[in-house]
Design a protein around this nucleic acid. Structure first.
Lengths: 189, 189
DNA sequence: CCAGAGAGAGAACGATCGTTCTCTACTTCG
DNA sequence: CGAAGTAGAGAACGATCGTTCTCTCTCTGG
């Protein structure tokens, strides 16, 4: 068995459990059982629970970035790429496992007590802002559009999570269409 | 000392502590000390920590509803009332104690493990949606506008909390202006 | 003045959690 | 075959948390 195979299985299992029940509600023993790993090997791979949490955040960041970009790349023109963000959200919201943005949840749970988690959440959201900004720039939009679309995406995530319905994705998408049209129209003027 | 005076002091103290450090990070002993109440009296007023959490959520809902409505009422016309939502957010984001929406945070922390908290968060957000819908209806806007503005408000809250800056309030306000203008323009057509 | 009820302070208790230690069994190499 | 190192399973440990209990002091009513 590969040395990093057990490591990634631990992180994947922790990701699922933390997402489903919250980080603080999942003990090391539950994680150990679910991952099928001995407690000794668990602490051999990770020095503490906090390091597992950080590894889970890294995994989530990578998963989000890759999944989003895969959907965006399928869109033809720059305007469609901006809207594809909300198509990606729509697909995510419909999954049974969806329980809101993992970074917002981690920040809410541990941000006040763990500077590492707060900082990672901040950087994740910052990277999303930059990603949207690059797409908006490709579309020839003025710089104020990207933060507006990012706020729509964030709001859709929390609304869908708490309401328990995926409606927010299409609502945010329609709002994005209006904002994009207005920004591009004004830029053309 | 009034019987409900100690009760409201406990809830107010718990609100501040839970907001600053997260619910699970604040023990009953810390709350007892901060509120200046004996442990016996604490459990005399509330049967459990969970009931204190629910009382804090009620307090937050009332505070949010009253504060928002006070700002909205000062606005002259229906369109200004819709935009006043984001002025209220701007004032909130600038407070040192701001750490994101307390309902989103509670939901992230306990929603998966406490159906009561999840349900209360859902109802709070639902009531906000209805509040915005009433304002939008007064402005003569089509029904799709209110969810769009609500999503903007939610997104501004999480963005401001995680980024640590109040910029999202004005960005969301400008987006709201565009969405309102588009919705009212289309309704007039 | 005294008996008794009530309140405050904190010790105590059971449960849980993160982390470490111990014991056993298996594998592997000479 | 035998010895040694390793891995697994779970007991153990210290800390913390929610909750309850106990002890002491005070205040009140007669």
């Amino acid at each position: 068995m590969d040395i990093s195979e057990v490591r990634s299985r631990i992180v994947a299992t922790a990701d699922g459990l933390y997402n489903a029940k919250g980080i603080q509600s999942v003990g090391m023993d539950e994680l150990r059982t679910a991952a099928g790993v001995s407690l000794k090997k668990l602490y051999q791979e990770f020095p503490s629970k906090g390091s597992i949490v950080m590894a889970v955040l890294e995994r989530r960041h990578q998963s989000w970035t890759e999944g989003l970009d895969a959907t965006v790349r399928q869109a033809a023109d720059p305007r469609a790429k901006l809207l594809a963000i909300f198509d990606y959200l729509a697909g995510w919201f419909c999954q049974d496992s969806f329980r809101g943005c993992g970074f917002i949840n981690s920040f809410a749970e541990l941000g006040a007590v763990s500077p590492e988690v707060a900082e990672y959440a901040r950087k994740h959201k910052e990277s999303f802002q930059e990603y949207v900004a690059a797409l908006a720039a490709d579309a020839g939009a003025p710089p104020y559009l990207a933060p507006q679309l990012a706020i729509l995406a964030e709001g859709a995530q929390t609304t869908a999570a708490i309401a328990g319905t995926p409606d927010a994705a299409s609502q945010a998408r329609q709002a994005a269409e209006v904002l994009i049209a207005a920004a591009l129209g004004q830029a053309a003027t």
